[in-house]
Amino acid sequence: MRDVTYLRPKDLQDAVQLSRTTPGCRPLAGGTDLMVMLHARTLRPAPRAILDVWSLSELKGVRRVDGMLEIGAAESYTGIIRSAEAQQHLPALVAAARTIGAAQIQNRGTLGGNLANASPAGDTLPVLLAYDAVVVTDRRSIAIDRFFTGYRHTALQSDELITAVRFPLDRQVVFRKVGTRAAQAISKVVIAVCRQPARVAIGSVAEVPLRASGAEAALASGDVAGAIAAVTADIRPIDDVRSTATYRQAVTQNVLRELLRQ
């Protein structure tokens, strides 16, 4: 880390400029993933600079924009949990934020970071999929279902900065995370479901957070049992350090059954 340059932009425009002109630059928000990887030197390619976007006021806050709710990319989970707008319109996102880490992580973790890190186990990501969220960057808007392109790969260009995430206001989404313990746990399975339109989004069951298309099709036609049956073919879970494929198959069905019963 000693050879990594620290850059503190004065505003978003400055950040965009630095991002475009600094080779090997990685944006740093709350650091809950990036600082771990920097210290352990596991990032490839190794970054040469970190661009600190944590304090940029343009990336903070929860606000209404064009009939949608917009959350700044560097707003903390704590900020989301405390936001009256988020509580009212995005209760599933608030619920997901509350399951992430504990106070220390909620105070630093951000939607922008969760998106850029693109872990298949990212706790908020299925929620974003179920809401049909839109990822806003310094240059464009990306529909969430086109954002994840492969294992820890995204549609972002190397110098592109996530600035916000937008959510529709009228969705009824429910959420459930299955982890090993009550706090500070990375998920074994994480599911977010919307009935209308039909969305079944699942994390930790494939190389990316995914939409379960078979289950959604069944759900769209009102076939709840069919959705529960179909979901096993939608997911591609593996055995890893956190769980087994067999468990993830069984529990995805069990949890989906519970969520659809609500």
């Binding site: 620290y6 600082m35 105070n107 630093r108």
Partner: peptide
């Protein structure tokens, strides 16, 4: 060193954070 144990907790502007995760 990865924000799991909280032994490095400090307060920044009154909020508790893991100082191993802060540049």
């Amino acid at each position: 060193g990865e924000g799991e144990c909280g032994a490095c907790s400090v307060l920044i502007d009154g909020d508790v954070v893991d100082s191993c995760l802060v540049a």
